[in-house]
Each structure stands twice: as structure tokens, then as C-alpha cells.
Design a protein around this nucleic acid. Sequence first.
RNA 1: GCCGAAGUGGCGGAACUGGUAGACGCGCACGACUCAAACUCGUGUGCCUUCGGGCGUGUGGGUUCGAUUCCCACCUUCGGUACCA
Length: 940
Amino acid sequence: MTTYSPREIESKWQLFWSKEKTFSVKEDPNKKKYYVLDMFPYPSGEGLHVGHPLGYIASDIFARFKKHQGYNVLHPMGYDSFGLPAEQYAIQTGQHPALTTEKNINRYRQQLDRLGFSFDWDREIRTSDPSYYKWTQWIFLQLFESWYDLVENKAKPISVLVSHFEKQGTQNLMASNTKALVFSSKQWNTYSTEKKEKVLMNFRLAYLSMSQVNWCPELGTVLANDEVKDGVSERGGYAVEQKEMMQWSLRISSYAQRLLDGLEQVDFTPSLKEQQRNWIGRSEGLLIDFEIEGQQQNIQVFTTRPDTIYGVSFMTLAPEHYLVQQITTDKYRSNVLSYLDTVSKKNERERQSNVGNPTGVFTGAYALNPMNNEKIPIWISEYVLHGYGTGAVMAVPAGDQRDYDFAKQFNIEIKNIFKGVSLDANAYVEKDVEYINSPKIEGLNYYEATDVIVEILIRKKKAIKKVNFRLRDAIFSRQRYWGEPFPIFYKNATPYPVKDKQVLLPKVDKYLPTNDGRPPLGRAKRSDWNVFLGDQMELNTMPGWAGSSWYFLRYMDPKNKKKLAAEEKLNYWKQVDLYVGGAEHAVGHLLYSRFWTKFLYDLNIISFQEPFKKLLNQGMIGGAIESLCLKKEKQEGKPVFICSSEVENNHIVKIPCHIDFVSDYGSKNSYLTPNQIAEFIKWRPEYKDAIFEIKNQQYSISELVKDTNKKIYTLTEHGKMSKRYFNTIDPEKICDSYGADTLRCYEMFLGPIEEHKPWSVNGISGVFGFLKKTWALFHQAKQVKQTNEELKILHKTIKKVTEDIEKYSFNTVISTFMIAVNEWNKLPQISFKTMENFTVLLSPFAPHISEEFWKKLGHESTVSIAPWPMFDPSFFEESSYEYPISFNGKMRYKLALSLSLTKDEVEREVLKNEKTKNHLAEKEVKRVIVVPGKIVNIVV
RNA sequence: GCCGAAGUGGCGGAACUGGUAGACGCGCACGACUCAAACUCGUGUGCCUUCGGGCGUGUGGGUUCGAUUCCCACCUUCGGUACCA
């Protein structure tokens, strides 16, 4: 027997798979399809670390499993290759981002190839490849050429809208728009081309508008709402401010209800669905008109609590509200103007930061409560969001905490409308109330009261029902170079689509904005563009999520030059059956790709509305971050390091330390020996004069190396695995020492796939040992008849492995393998037939060693297409069972009894047993529970 | 604050639908092999114990013959979100 040498066999089989095109797949109507997809990576310069492949391993296991079961499995991989880091690098070095990207992709590919994935690389896609982004641009144009019909609830061609305008103007039109327009067909027909385009822009699903955007000066670009976290950019953590800019947006808000409803059809985790629901933020309420005293116009407010209308004691408008100037009285004008001025200087974050301490001014105007004509003062406050509802709020301090805080701040009356409720400290936001001071609804509960108020206001034509969504339209322009160029040109400041030819990214001399602040594409001369029409080309590029919103479709037909994918292929592969990726994309990517899928469905391009049937979120593999603790104050100009146990009494700076130097890294007692400190200093020479304080004694490095018993303790934290913390583990390193099969099994063995877990090499030797044991066991197998014992172990294993893979419980599968091998090892002999079956079970997890076994068993072809073993329950027909005998629910001993015994017979056997008598001692048996084939419980 | 997920040995974790808590692996201890070490193999390993047993799945209560599993309250950790009317 040769020893198990993963290096040799793994590269051999990887070559075999790629030569034989083992995993290349074609549409086959005679076979059931299964589509397994990974979230494709952005190829960063840092390469992969052991955390990245976790999801790829899981999906690969599942894809291989389905292949064994006879499915036609689509399992592709590609690269989300447009993005900021390559561009940032280009700015620094002048190197074209395409070159960096290419280099990074090659590195990724090399790392991926070593892990033995069953990807069909013939289907590889790259979002930055013109042959790919041609279709991203195409979808954008379809959005541009569409509007949303609210009657049929679907997108329709803009030509349908134009003919509607020609015949009826805006009459009988129910369409999503930016603002409500009213015109007749006569008017429409007199409009100029430019005027018509402006009107249509109001309806297009991809539209240009002046909008409040999240501007990030450091990145030199705008960001979508979900790219901003806590007021800073998600990537890089730079400050973000609000700015008015002309930008492309996508009318995702039209799809809000469908995006919400679609969640019922898909198998995502509850928490992820919840996040999407919150992001969409549906609320049902009422639009109520309040007359303004002495004015023609009304103020419209949106409320979800019409039942509290008798508690309205003031009204608040957003500073941007269109009626502010008009209703402000002369007496309060200067006050209002100075407030508006203060607010305009604040960014969104500052405006939202003073919770509980609101600001605002009185306008001098009064509104009239439609229920009782009471006068209500109208205020302005920054806490009211211009973009939500109507930008005006009927303030009910009794029932809303924000209104309550505002009223307290400005000494406005707090009207109590709830019986038996104290409003001394807080508003009362619960709905389990009885009303007082509310003439029409006293004595009613919340639901009845709401119905009554709604009915009255609607009858008086003072209100209409309305559903509001928090979801905003998505800004689609980025002021960057490395993204999809828009297929758009401008003539007389009006945008038109470029239809006949694909617009390619032009050459530029630098990847920076122009001196006059236009995006980098502004540097391209007319001749640098492959297409130049009109006065000017669009200078923005598309955001990172454009290419990733539809890529799962392109894998079905990646080389198609005429269409985004051929119809018959789209109809064959359909939805992704299993999608594996990180939960951090919960709202961004997943929402946008669901939106584009629904849009393409409306266009009859695809036959399904949800892109991903089942989503599996893999947890992150964290790393231990090890830092040396540096005192903030230097001592005689020298840096001082102290032990992590001493940090409480000192101000320290954490200096991340490469985990290669640290002993017991990841544990509470991680430390550096003097030799390791010397290594650290070699790595960070700026600390060569540092003083190390150990147990109140100070040492220089030269003193320390003389006493090897000294230790300096490092601070251990758990966090991301990242180059920045010097704690990344390269999967290739693991492959070098243990092999890919061990790495694959070990990453699965770490724990449930969805959970976050720290990386540690501690357990890896156990998994490696298991493969070695399996190797040895295999080489002991003989051409003999299968014994009942080995078959029993085999079928127990088949059952458990199959069930667990179907539950995505991969960690327990590895345990099951280990148990089986341990048990077979105890038998005097093992047959080839048993090992053959086991090899198939093992192959999704450890494909290389399995191929090797398969060949040694005499097969010519790959193990990856061998049929999955069938479970045979007949091996488990037992005649007796070892009953656990428990007393008051605690198991005390076991007793083997025939399964043919009745309950009474079991009870009798148990009670007359010596051990039962011992356990009972003097106590009396109150009751005996017998569950046949399960347990016996004696109650004393 | 609100929403979601999760708390089990020294560690990663297992336990079907309420039925033997701690599978499997790491670590540790002892033993075999070896001149020796590594490798490998074997045995043991939740805690306490007066060796009878007692206690144990974040805490406190409840339902049950029986609870890691179901119910109520609370604590902690992680993730999301934050004036959305």
C-alpha cells in the first residue's frame, strides 16, 4: 500500500477534470435540471483566504450530490469585475483597471482550481467584459423604454404610453411617476420633441432627475442608500453628504408591492426576509387634507393612525415642503428663513442626530382639523422627512413619541385622548386603548375607531386610503471610470438611447474627475469613443450592482451574441435552485436582482418572477486578531509595549501583530516569546528600540532574548479575516500541507454552514487523520462477500449522509463518515463492494481521493457520475431493542428486550429485574411509562 | 429603542417530531511501538463525590411520567435598522 499523498493525486485529478471537461454541461431535455449558484466574487488584489471558499465548498458538495442523483447540474462561476479597488489602484499607478483586474482574476482562478470545484469553466463570465456588459446596457435601455402600468401592475413599452397620450392625454392613466402631471391629448400633440421627452422622463423606469443624493467626496461619487451605513460609505468608511445632482435612477419603488409579495414564494431565512420587508417598509394609512386658515390650498398629510385625529395639536412640515414659503406669515418670516438656512447647512446625518431634542419654528399659520375645525398651529421641523409620505405630519403628542418630544420642547399642548393613560413621561403608542375627548369614537376599540374615522373623512372627501413604502428609487449613476458606460447621448440637453452600436468604455489619460468636476469619462475626447452621437455622451457609469443583478441568466448562454440568452436555454434552466452567499447582500444585491427579474418577466423574456428559489447564507469565518499593546505615551522617546493583562490601567494603541509570530494565537493567553518578539521587530523595524514591560520590569529586546522564559501577552480579539490585521490564511497553504480534500472536509466540519465561526487550525489534523484512515481501510478491502455487519454500517451511513446533505447539514455528514470508518475498522475484514458505495458518498466532499479509489476499483470513468447509493431499510429489521430504563426521567441502565413484547410484558420484565429493585431501594413505584421501541420510565 | 438569530464540557460542535445530553473531532492524561522524538495504535476524559450517589444544556418560573427541545419573564452575545408619521 502506498501512503496517502494528496499532493500527487489532487493535481492529477484536477488535470483530468479539466482535460476531459468532466463538468461541462449542456441542456438536455431528457434530464431534470438543477442550478446551483455561488455569489460571484469581486477579484480583489488580496486573493482568497480560507473564509471565502466556505460557501463555494458547500455549493460544490450540493452540486456534485445532485449530479450523482442524475440531475443535469448547472454550476458556473465568474467574476464581478467592475469595481472601486481596481480603479483606485489605477488612479495611483496609471495602470488600466482592466489589466489589474485580469491579473487578479488569474490569481483567483489559480486558487480556486486547487480546491477541486466542479465548475463549468466554459461558462465563465466577467461583468467588465464588453460582451457581457453589452447586455447590462441592453437591460438598461429596456428600462429606459418602459413605464409602469398600475392597473395591470406591470412594465410596458413607452410606445404604449405615447399612444395613450396621443389619444387621451393623462386621462384614465394609472402609472408610476416622479410627479403627477395632467394634460390633454390636444396639449400633448402640440408639445415639442424636447417637451415630450421631458414628460416621458417622468414615467420611464430608468429616468433622469434632479435628486438628493449621497455624495461621497473622498470616493468622488454618489452612493445608493444601501451603500451608506451610519452616515459613512460602506466601502472605506468615508463621510457622505447630501447634494442635489442630475442622476439616473431606477423606478424600483413601482415594484415595492411585488417585491414584498414575492418573498412568500422563496425559501430565504426568516431574518433575511425580515430585513427585506423592513427595507421595503410598507405602511397602510390615510392621506388627509387639512385646510389652511385663510388660504386656498390644503396641506395633505399621511398617517397610519387616523384614530388619533382628535389628538392633533399641531402640524409639522419638512423644511423643503412646497407650502412653507407661501403660508409663513410676515411676523414669523425672518424666523423661518433663518431656520431654513441653518437646516440647509446640515447633512442628513446631522439632521437626524438630535433625537429627543428636536428643533423647529412656528410659521404663524394654522390648519383646521377636518373633524372639528379646531385651529392647529403649523410648525416646520427637520425631523420630518421630505421624501416620505407627503412631507407633512399631523402631530399627535399623545400617541407618537417624536410628536411628544417636539411638543414638550416647544410647550405645545398635549391633548390626552386615551382613557386612563398618563402622559406625564411618554407618549402612549400601544393600540389597546379607549378614547376620550374624541366625540365620534368614544367607547370603541382601535379597529372600530379607525374604521369610523376613515369612513367619515372619505365621505366628506377629506381623505383617501393610501399605501406608502419606505423603499426609494435607486440612484443608478456613478461618477467613476471602471463601470458600465451608459448607452445614452445628449442632444439639446435631452438624453437619447444609442441603439445600433454598443458603447464601449473609452480610453482616458487619467482615472480622475476632470478639473471642472465632471466624471472621469469627461476626459475622453470625441475620437476616444467608439460611438459619439449628439452633443455629448453620458459621462456617468453604472453602479456595481448593475452587472450582478442579472448575471445568473447569462451563465445559461454566456456566449450568445444576439440575445442576453436564448429563449430555450432560459426556459430550460429557469430559476437558480440553490444560491449560496453571504448575508451581507441581504438588501442590496438580492433586492435589485429580484427587481430586474420581475422586470424581465414583464417583458416576457423569462417565465419566472423570482431569481433564487432557495438561498443559503454561509457564515463568515472570522480570524483571531492579535495585537501588541503599545502605551500611548512614549518613555524617553521610546515606545513601550505592555502585556494585554495590564491594559485596564493604561491608555494603549493596538498594534496588529502577524499571527505567524504569536504563540497560542486565538486563545486568551496568546503571547510572544523573546524570539518571536525579535521576529516581530524584524517585521516592524520601527520598534527596534521599544521597551517591553513584563510584570513591572522593563526590558529591551537585547535583554529579553537572553531570558527565553519571559513572555509578553498579546491582546486577542475576534474579527474579520483581513490583510489589514495580518491574520489571513491562504487556502493554498492548507492545500500544500494537507490537501484540498482535507480543507474541504475541515471547513464543513467546523460547524453549521450558516453560523459565524472562528478559524482555527486546531482540529484539522483530525480530519486529515480521517482521510488517512479511510485510505488505509480502502487498501485493506478484499474481493469478499459483504457481511451483514458491514452492510448495516453502510446503509446507516447512506441514510444519514443523504438526509443531512438535503438539510445542508454538512458538518454532521463528516462525523457520520468518521463513525462509519471507525466501525468498519473494528471488523475483521471489509469488501470492495462496500468501499465502492462509500466512495460515492464521500466523493462530493473529498472528490480527489474518491476519484483515486474509483479508479483503483477498476472504473474507467469519473466517479462524479456514479449513481448515488440507495438506502435499504431491510438491514434494520431488528427483533430486540436495548431499552433505556429511566427513573423519574433519568436513564439508569439498559435492558435488551424483544420488540414483540406488549407494553404490559415490558413493564413486568423491567420491574422484576434486579437492577430495578436496586434503584428503587425502599421507594414505591407510582407509575410505569412504556413507549415500545423507545424508552421505559419508572415514576417513584 | 425596534426587528431577527443564537447561548450546551477546556475548545469546535452533536441530539429525529418532547424520549439514553455531550455523538464526531481537537486538547489533555496514561499506555504500546521507538535508543529517543515524531508518526501510528490502544484506553480514559462534563462537574462534584464520603464512591452510595448528587448536580448538570445562559438565569428564574411553568406545562409534562419525561424538557437542550414547548410556554412565560429576564440576562448576555452577534447581525440588521434607526426620527418612515
